[in-house]
Design a protein around this nucleic acid. Structure first.
Length: 357
DNA sequence: CGGGGATCTACC
DNA sequence: GGTAGATCCCCG
């Protein structure tokens, strides 16, 4: 490998970086590397073609005398997720994570975290909190905070803006939130759930012509996606791998919309994004996730009961507690025993605290 | 669970 | 006098 590096006038780490960059140059480099390792095994024809490649390489080095155009690292690794970053859009390209019943356990809380610019991304390519503030768009996790309760480090990493895209408020708190809950719920039925999520800009048609248009927000001009995608790869013993791919509009979606409505094939998404998301997965050996699992998001009543419970837990005053409790009447929801117990428990706790004062 | 904003304080 | 961080409040 060293002689190749010498030829390229680069250091070995640089070589490896170029090697994974997926450019035409690296393909040529790979051919040369392959030849160097298997020198004795190759025939005359391939040797000649490799000499041609070397000539191209040398010419390429002269063309690129002042260095390879650098799009930054292909992959960025964090405590509990991996992503590819788009320096032009100031958002991730994709964010990958691996959920199991075990990794979803823990008590790290989002309430202790703040959104922060990712220190690993040069400032000129990074989003800032100020870009989002007052933009009309919320900061939407691609790998959600709720998947990072396992440790404070994992939770903190998920709040870097490298994991965030501008997302419609209602979508983020509603449909997308329910989709994330569904993904976590899958770990009850599958040993392993792998997810890749990211932003997408879909074309629209006008006067018979197709266009792609997206808003940019803040001084950093962060790209607002028209859609978000989610790829779900779920495994369980002795069964084919289950695959589900979805493209969700970045807009309010109420409970009348079903998840299956947004399902597409993996090649459709790969064609649009230019990314082979799971190149080692044999699609012919997979089954449709929605054929082997419900693909039903949590229903309205259960969903509202769930976050009323969360609000009861975080209520600090009796008036706040009563106010949250009244939501049940307004929304004609019937609390189960656990919720009633929670209410009474919080009621006692708040009374005790007020007595102390 | 998913996200906000207002206010106060410390500080330069 | 303006800003950063903490605290408490709020919403779907």
């Amino acid at each position: 490998m060293l002689w190749i590096c010498k030829l390229l006038r680069i250091s070995p780490p640089m070589f490896l970086r170029g090697f994974v960059s997926g450019t035409a140059v690296s393909t040529v480099v790979y051919a040369v590397l392959y030849a160097s390792i298997n020198r004795k095994a190759i025939d005359t024809a391939s040797v000649q073609s490799n000499f041609e490649d070397i000539n191209k390489l040398e010419q390429g080095q002269e063309i690129l005398k002042y260095g390879f155009p650098d799009r930054g690292p292909e992959l960025m690794y964090y405590t509990n997720h991996v992503l590819a970053y788009d320096r032009a859009k100031r958002t991730p390209v994709w964010v990958a994570e691996h959920l199991t019943a075990e990794t979803l356990k823990g008590y790290a809380s989002r309430k202790n975290e703040k959104f922060l610019p990712d220190p690993r991304i040069p400032e000129m390519f990074s989003a800032q909190n100020s870009d989002y503030q007052g933009s009309g768009w919320s900061r939407g996790h691609m790998s959600p905070a709720g998947n990072h309760k396992i440790s404070k480090e994992a939770m903190k990493d998920s709040f870097f803006l490298s994991n965030i895209v501008p997302q419609n408020y209602e979508n983020n708190a509603g449909f997308w939130n329910r989709l994330e809950m569904y993904c976590r719920d899958l770990t009850k039925n599958f040993q392993s759930v792998r997810i890749i999520s990211g932003p997408l800009v879909m074309p629209y048609e006008e006067e018979g012509k197709k266009f792609i248009k997206y808003q940019i927000i803040g001084n950093s001009e962060v790209a607002v996606p028209t859609h978000l995608y989610k790829i779900i790869v779920a495994e369980r013993k002795s069964q084919p791998v289950a695959l589900g791919v979805f493209i969700i509009p970045n807009e309010p979606l109420d409970f009348s919309h079903h998840l299956t409505k947004y399902q597409i094939t993996l090649p459709q998404l790969e064609s649009r994004t230019g990314i082979n998301f799971v190149p080692k997965l044999d699609l012919s050996k997979t089954v449709n996730l929605c054929d082997v699992h419900s693909c039903q998001l949590i229903e309205k009543g259960k969903f509202e009961l769930y976050f009323i419970g969360r609000k009861l837990e975080s209520a600090n005053t009796l008036s706040r507690l009563e106010h949250v409790w009244k939501e049940l009447e307004e929304k004609k929801l019937k609390p189960d025993k656990d919720l009633i117990d929670l209410y009474e428990k919080r009621h006692k706790e708040i009374l005790m605290e007020e007595k102390r004062k």
